[in-house]
Every structure is written in C-alpha cells, then in structure tokens.
Write a protein that binds this DNA or RNA. Structure first.
Length: 956
RNA sequence: GGCCCCGUGGCGGAAUGGCAGACGCAGCGGACUUAAAAUCCGCAGCCCUUUGCUGGGCGUCCGGGUUCAAGUCCCGGCGGGGCCACCA
C-alpha cells in the first residue's frame, strides 16, 4: 500500500466509509417512509406502486448472497418509481415462526424466541448495509403478538364461514344455520363436505329445530372452512409433527429429509379444495410466470370424468360385507367401461377391513393373504413406494358386476390405488391404462380391448393403448358405443349411466385440504378451546391474541404417537370459558375448558402479510379499509410486483391466494387476488470442482496449475470446474459481508444485477465483479477530481454526449420497467466509455450532465449517486425527479442502413433520417446509391424490400 | 414417463423475424513507468487469402421446413435444467 493513493479515489475503503454515512442520513430524514392515505404528506394524486419482496426466514447463518439479488431488483424499481412520481410501498419483515427456528433452538439449547430475535437483528443489519429503501417503520415479524393476533383472528373468521357452492363463495356460518332452519333447499352446499350424507341432509331439512344439538353441531362443523377431521396425514416421527403435502418431497420431509409416514389423525384442516375452481380460473387474470401458473394448475389437478357404481357379489354366504352398498369408482375414461375386467381398491379402503374382520366374507386363505398384504402396504413408506413401482396386490375374494357387460369381475386391492384420490377405488381397464395393464400382466387378469387407435386399428393389441380412438367391442343389448370416437363415447355412456342411476359426471381434484395443525412449539396457538366432551369453541375476539406460553422444554420426542408440545404448558392449557372469552350463550363462563395444543404451520403467518403491510400498526383491525383499498384494491388489484423464488410456487403462493379469496368473500378485504404481478429471481450458483468419478472437491482443496487447468491439492489429480448450488460442504458459499468489505455495497448491488437476466440462474464469478467495480471507479474519475474531491465539469457542451445521455435516460428507464437491469447497466458503461474517451483532463460532462447522470445511477448505486449529487446540487438525489428525455435528442440526421442482396449484407449506406423512415423513399434512395448499384452489378432486380429505419434487401 | 424452460466466442451474457456476438471477464498489442501495479488507447467468432491495404468462405447444438430475410417462427432429433410423478 503506497501512500500516494489519492484521497478521493473511489475504492472499497471510500465506499465503506461513505455508504453507512448516507444510510444514516436517509434513516434520519425518513427518506423511504411512506404515509398512508389520510396521513400528512400523503398525495392522492400520485399513482401507487406496492412492491413486495418475499420476506425472508431469518436463519442463524445470516443473509445468503441470493437474498440481495431479488432485494436489489425491487429496490431499483422502487427508487425509479419514486423518481417517476409514484407513492411507493416497499416494506420488509420476517417470516419467523416454524420448524427451522425451533430445530436451531434445539441444537443450540437456546430458546427460539431468543435465537430468532438475534437472527432478525442480524438480517436487518445486513439488509440495511445494502442501502435498500425499505420503509422500516412498517417492519414486523410473524412472531410479534401484535401480528399473530390477527393471524388467529383470520383463523376464527374462516372457522366461522362455509363455502356456498351455488354462489361459489364463502359466507358466514350463521347464514348456513338460517338456511337449515328455514329448510331452504335451494342452497347447495359444498359438494366436498362428505361427512354428512345426502340422506342425513334430507332428514334435517325443515326439521332443524327438532334435531339434537350434537347432530346440529356435527353437521354445521362439517361445512366450516376451518374444520377438524380425522384423515390420513403425513406424519414425520423424527420432527415430531404432521406436515402439509407441499412440505413432503419424495416421501421425505422438506426440512431435514426425514422419512414421512401416512397416519390417520384428527387435525385442523382448511377447506382449500372448495376454492379449487376459482384458484384455477383466476390464474387467467394474473401476470405471473406461465411455469408457475402451470405448476398451480397441475397441483390442483382438476380432471373431469364420471363416478360409476359397481354392485358387489360376495361368493360366500355372509352378510358382513354390505352388498347393498355399491363400490364407487372415479374414472376419466367412462367410455372404456366395457373393457373393465377387474377392480382395485386401495389397501386402506373400508372394503378391505370389512372382509378381513368378517369371517366367512371370503375363504380363510384369501382373507389371510389379504390381511397380510394390507398390513405390508400400510407399513411401506412413501420412499419405498416411489423406489419400486413394481405392481403388488392381493385378491379380496369378492366380485363386482360390470354394469355394461353384466359380467362378474374380481375385486383386488393394490397400493397403486390411492385412498386419497377419487373414491379410493378404480375400475381397471388393462387394455387402455398402463398401470392396469402391468397389473393384469403380472397377475394374469383378463385384458379386453375396447378402443381402437385411429391410425392403425387393432394393430397393437400386445401393448396397452391409452390414447383417444374409436370404441370397439362395446355393445350390450342395452347400449352400444361401437364406432364412436372417444369424446362421443364418453358422452353417450355418461347419459346411459345417468339414466340407469348408476353413475354421474364428476370432477375430481388432486388438491387436498390444507393440513393446518402442527404438534410443534414454535408457532401460533389456535384460538380454540374444548369443553369436557371435546367440543370446540372459538376464543372471543376480545381476548386475542392467545399468546404462546413460555416453555422450557420444546424438544420433540421421537415417536409414532403424536403429542402436541403445548400440552406440556399445563397452566396455560387449562382455563375457563370466561377466561378464554367464549360466547357465554354457548358456555357458562366458569366452565373449565382446555386450549387447543397444536400450533399453526409456518405458512400461516406468511399467508396474509402482504395485507398487513398496508396498515401494520393498526391495533383495532387486521387492516384499515382505506389503506387496504388504496394499496391493494382498485382496478389493478393486489400487490403491483411480488418478487421471490419459485420454490414457493405451490405452497405459500397457493395458500395466500386461498386466504385472500376467502377474506374477500367475507368482506374483510377489497381485493380478490393478493399478487397481481409475480416474478421469480433466478438462483445464484457458484463454481466447484469435480473429480473424474463426479464427486465434488471443496474449492479450497483445489489449485489452478495453469490457465483453465485445476488439480486437487491432496492427490494432484485433475479436476473439472463445474457450476453448482452454493453449499457449505463445497466451501463455495459467498458471504455478502465479505463482498461488501472488499468492494462496497454499491459494487455488490451492481454486480448482482449485471450478472444476467433477473430470472435466469447464473454463476457467481469473483473475477467478473471487478468489472463493475472498475466501472464505478471510471465513472467517479470522469466526474470527480481524485486529489481534491471536487467536481470535474466542463463548460463546453458536447452535442454528441448530450444526445447519448438522453438515449441513456430513455434506455435505462425502459429497461427498469421490463426488469432488464443487466442491459441498463451495459448502457451506462457505454456512456462512461464514450465520455471518458472525450475527456481531455478537465472532464467531458457539464455540471448539469453530471447531475442527470447521477440521477440515472441513483436506483442502482444510491450511495455513489448521492456522493456525486452532493458535488453538483443540494438535497438528496433519491428525492429528485427522473430526468426528462427530449425526443428530438433521440434522432440523428443521418442513419446507417445495411443493404443486403438475397439476404446477405453487402454494404452499408448513409441515409438522411427523414428519407429512411419511409419505405418508398428508402428504396429509391438505396437503389440510386452508387455503392448499391456497384454491388448489384447490372443483375436484373426481381424485388426490393425496404424496412423503414432498418434495412434494404435486394432480391436478384 | 409426463409437462415446462433452455442450448450463441475461452467465460458471464446482448440482439420488437431485419447488420449475430452489445457490455463485462479472461487474453493480446501499445502508451505512461527504471520496473511492476493501476490507468489510458487499441485489437479480438472461426477458417482461408494478401508483404500490406484487403478479399472470400463458414458460423447461434444437429437435421428438415416457412420467409425477400431465421439465433428468433414450425416439425423431428440430441443435450442440459426445472417441476410433477402409480392421481385412475
């Protein structure tokens, strides 16, 4: 380090001194705080811009280099929007309840309330060091009781509502009770409230007041949007909790990768399935990546088909298996009914247990084998199921009658049929379904072809054909499908089934209701208490929040018998109805009650935080009406830009939409969809090295022996550089703190935006970052004297540079709008290169040009821009108006137009701009041009295409 | 296996159907310097040709097609990535 480094050189030391200083000034002047409608300083005439980052989960490890990628992008847009006259809402907060924090606490032995607060403080410090323009006055965490109070309130709101299938919207539960009481048959109820049979519904209509209270309660409860149900759930013994479907990846827990079993348990559920159609249909209106929309559509998995009833025949004479009760199946191919040669029920299907538990329902040997298979299938984990798709199964001993052919067909059980989808039973058509075909081949079951492929009918009978074609072998005395194309055959058979009352059209969904209970400690308690009989009562709104009790021991006990942790907080758990604020007309205040001891999942708090930011300090409402309508309502509904990773495509992004829709139905919020525009930033990857056996060597165990040649230090063996996810194991994790120390925050921000398109996954290259660093140094030297720190400005205006500056302003503005930050930065570099080239020592930009250049830089490198601005004008650059573009400055007098012959560029000619902007003029100008004439060399011209302002193509 | 996205120099990447390779990294040459670093100026897809100015050919994974014109649109392969995956 020599001491002749100029005092005002732009380097890391300089950046690290001045950046925190500007951050302090911004905080002091509340530069980024946004008033709400009605507050002083609020200007209703400005358009709004609500820009939200997916808030982070504050982990002990601190910020990852991927975080600032999205945050820098939104920061640039927000800064630009402020400069172009918008009211910008740009908040930040913490998604802080949930498994990872609890697991970290268990590992470290420190309470999650402490570790989480510490992690939040560290995250906030790191984010602020980047100079992001968040409105910190709106900050909150999902663990704040002032926030989770309203999470609980929303739970109660949805608990107190049901889904009216007729109106396709949620309504207060009181309206359902009214409808029952008045016997209004016109009200069609949620078709998936399966716990109440048609018969029972018919019975209570018009006789509601004479139905006993317990039955009333059971019926009403079965309609609620939040309900308790005994269903098969994902149980993870190692984590000691139940998990939602999106938290289970390939049969293992998303957190920790532990095995997950399926287990029947009584759980709080959300009836998200009621919204399946709306969640699909409303995707149309959203400006979202098409891949994410596709993922949501597939996750919801709507499919149309028919439900068909098969009469059962029990060979042995036993009444134990109810032969009156037909076996229902769902199929998307009712047209193949004539080819249904056997049936399969899931091992968990009630038919299996009925046969196993009833001696004589089938012969003893068959029953024994069935019992053995069902037991085996139940203990088989999802991982095992996915590893081997070899078909397994057992005969149940009973037969069914194919209603089309009238033939007896065997009923089997096999774990390739899922209990959770459709009715848990299928009709098997081995000729036209690959799975059925495999199963039939293995167990020697009959295969009957009933659809012929359109192109070569009947040729491929040795293999299964699952496409559409023409029905064959499908006729009885009653109905014939022969000769009909698949679509028509479906229609005809559906009509026939309906006329015989043995089937009906039906839509099925893969989407399951949202499992909402967790047996963990670190989450929101449910606002629910139970009486001695186990009936649930909502806690009174006035007593919210139900605070999470202090608990010293929150470690899970690995077990197959789920026990909620909050049951350990005995004093908290046992209370009275009055204490819990239960409506005294339901329970007398002195009635002893126990609190629900499950907690809500991590996804609860994140399902509505976008709404709360509109009005985060409101103690009386979850959100004030005026604030919500201004920031999220109106013609452009929802958050104007929501940015985050694509890993939340079906979890968080679906749950949020569900809550938003339901809250909208209930009149709590004015907008139906939470996120009008969504964008995913790409993954930042890193370099690592691979041995010849594909194993990966940590970066610190490798050295470069020559250009592009790397060896493993320990062995001297050659290794190949590869691009991979950052991982502690590979020692290729980039820490933002280190990058800032080496280059400053502005350079780090700039590089992350310069790496490539925002949505692309791209590798971090430590070499490339110096390009951005050098750019800032060049720009600095262009405008500032490094020795004195004073502005370097000329008084001579260069028209060329002035034009280029206007182009830059237009280009950068347009690129920001389309989130193309890399090309915006490239344009700035070009500008600096041109201006540096014109610099004869005293600068080439005027004071006014430096000012506008600083304004263009401000969204990207705000500290740098402030530092520059402070040398040309007073005030802060971040509150300036975006510089104007003069359209006249964007055009040249003459433009260069390429002339090609037969599509190949042969020459370039200069054309007056006025001539070039019109096809005819351009054509005649070009054809008269000496160079063009020479190029054509007298060949006969067949055709000339002149594209105004672009090019001329001569066809000879 | 199904669906979606992608394939451009040594590398990251530019390019509303209209001049392929902007900008940056790495590289090369020059200036400044005793020297190096830094900085500034310049060169730079590949191949052939010319002493040189130059001239020519081939080029966006491969093969077809549409078009006056294709990296871009269509069809068929190959390769990479993501998501889903026994959903009847």
């Amino acid at each position: 380090m020599s001491n002749d480094v100029p005092q005002f050189r732009y380097d890391a030391g300089f950046a690290n001194r001045m950046e925190p200083a500007w951050q302090a000034r911004w905080a002091e002047s509340k530069a980024y705080e946004t008033p709400n409608p009605g507050a002083s300083g609020f200007d209703l005439s400005k358009p709004r811009f609500y820009c939200l980052d997916m808030f982070p989960y504050p982990s002990g490890a601190g910020l990852h280099i991927g975080h600032p990628e999205g945050y820098t992008a939104t920061d640039i847009i927000c800064r630009y929007k402020r400069m172009t006259g918008h009211n910008v809402l740009h908040p930040m907060g913490w998604d802080a309840f949930g498994l990872p924090a609890e697991q970290y606490a268990i590992q470290t032995g420190v309470h999650p309330a402490i570790t989480t607060r510490k992690a939040i403080d560290n995250f906030r410090r790191q984010l602020q060091r980047f100079g992001f323009s968040y409105d910190w006055s709106r900050e909150f965490g999902t663990i704040d009781d002032g926030y989770y109070k309203w999470t609980q309130w929303i739970f109660l709101k949805l608990y107190g509502a049901w889904f009216d299938g007729e109106a396709s919207k949620a309504r207060p539960i009181s309206e359902l009770v009214d409808a029952f009481a008045r016997g209004v048959r016109a009200v069609r109820f949620n078709p998936r409230a399966d716990e109440v049979s048609e018969a029972e519904r018919a019975r209570v209509f018009g006789a509601w007041s004479s139905v006993d209270a317990a039955t009333q309660r059971r019926i009403v409860d079965s309609y609620r949007l939040a309900y308790r149900s005994e269903t098969t759930v994902n149980w993870c013994p190692k984590l000691g909790t139940v998990l939602a479907n999106d938290e289970v990846i390939d049969g293992k827990s998303e957190r920790g990768g532990f095995p997950v079993l399926r287990k029947p348990m009584k759980q709080w559920m959300f009836r998200i399935t009621a919204y399946a159609d709306r969640l699909i249909d409303q995707l149309e209106e959203l400006d979202w990546p098409s891949s994410t929309k596709a993922m949501q559509r597939e996750w919801i998995g709507r499919s149309e088909g028919a439900e068909i009833e098969f009469r059962l025949v029990v060979e042995t004479k036993s009444s134990a298996v109810d032969v009156q009760k037909p076996l229902k199946v769902f199929t998307t191919r009712p047209d193949t009914l004539f080819g249904a040669t056997y049936m399969v029920v899931a091992p968990e299907h009630e038919l299996c247990s009925a046969i196993i538990n009833t001696p004589g329902s089938a012969d003893d040997a068959t029953r024994a084998k069935l019992a053995e298979y069902v037991k085996w299938a139940r203990n088989r984990s999802d991982v095992e199921r996915q590893e081997s798709k070899e078909k397994t199964g057992a005969f149940t001993g009973v037969y069914a009658i194919n209603p089309a052919t009238g033939k007896q067909i065997p009923v089997w059980t096999a774990d390739y049929v899922m209990m959770g989808y459709g009715t848990g039973a299928i009709m098997a058509v081995p000729a036209h379904d690959e799975r059925d075909w495999e199963f039939a081949e293995k167990f020697g079951l009959q295969i009957v072809q009933v659809v012929a492929a359109n192109d070569q009918a009947g040729k491929s009978s040795d293999k299964c054909f699952s496409g559409d074609g023409v029905a064959i072998n499908s006729a009885s005395s009653d109905v014939s499908l022969n000769g009909l194309p698949t679509a028509e055959a479906k229609q005809k058979i559906n009509l026939w089934l309906e006329s015989k009352q043995i089937g009906k059209r039906r839509v099925n969904y893969k989407l399951r209701d949202w499992t909402f209970s967790r047996q963990r400690y670190w989450g929101e308690p449910f606002p629910i208490v139970y009486d001695a009989a186990g009936n649930a009562y909502p806690v009174g709104e006035k007593t919210l929040p139900v605070k999470l009790p202090e608990l010293a021991d929150y470690a899970p006990v690995e077990s197959d018998d789920p026990q909620p942790l909050l049951a350990k907080a005995k004093e908290w758990m046992h209370t009275t109805a009055g204490e819990a604020g239960v409506d005294p007309s339901l329970l007398a205040p002195n009635t002893p009650v126990t609190r629900e001891t499950n907690t809500m999942p991590g996804s609860a708090g994140s399902s509505w935080y976008a709404i709360r930011y509109c009005d985060p300090r409101n103690a009386n409402e979850m959100v004030g009406r005026e604030a919500e309508q201004y920031w999220m309502g109106g013609s452009a509904q929802g958050v104007d830009l929501y940015l985050g990773g694509s890993e939340h495509a079906v979890g968080h992004l679906l749950y949020s939409r569900f809550w938003q829709n339901a809250l909208h139905d209930l009149g709590v919020v004015s907008c139906k969809e939470p996120f009008r525009k969504l964008f995913h930033q790409g993954l930042i990857t890193s370099f690592a090295y691979q041995r010849s056996d594909k194993s990966i060597v940590p970066v610190d165990e490798v050295k470069e022996v020559s250009e592009g040649e790397y060896v493993e230090i320990a062995t001297g063996a050659k290794v190949t550089p590869i691009i991979t996810k950052m991982s502690k194991r590979y020692k290729n994790v980039i820490n933002p703190d280190d990058v800032i120390a080496e280059f400053g925050a502005d350079t780090c921000r700039l590089y992350e935006m310069y790496m490539g398109p925002l949505d692309a996954s791209k590798p971090w290259n430590p070499r490339d970052i110096s390009g951005c660093y050098r750019f800032l140094q060049r720009a600095w030297r262009l405008c500032v004297n490094e020795q004195t720190g004073e502005l370097k400005a000329t008084s001579e205006v260069s028209t060329a540079l002035e034009k280029q500056l206007h182009r830059l302003i237009a280009k950068v503005g347009g690129d920001i709008e389309r989130l193309a930050f890399n090309t915006a930065i490239a344009a700035m570099m070009e500008f600096v290169n041109a201006a540096t080239g014109a610099d004869k020592g005293q600068g080439s930009l005027t004071r006014d040009q430096v000012a506008r250049f600083a304004q263009v830089l401000a969204p990207f490198v705000p500290h740098f821009a402030e530092e520059l601005w402070s040398r040309v004008a007073s005030g802060s650059v971040v509150t300036q108006t975006w510089p104007a573009v003069d359209a006249k400055m964007l055009v040249d007098d003459e433009i260069e137009v390429p002339v090609s012959v037969n599509g190949k560029v042969k020459t370039r000619i200069m054309v007056p701009a006025a001539v070039a902007k019109e096809a005819k003029g351009l054509e005649s100008f070009a054809m008269a041009h000496a160079e063009v004439v020479a190029t054509i060399a007298g060949k006969p011209v067949k055709k000339v295409i002149a594209v105004p302002g672009k090019m001329v193509n001569v066809v000879v």
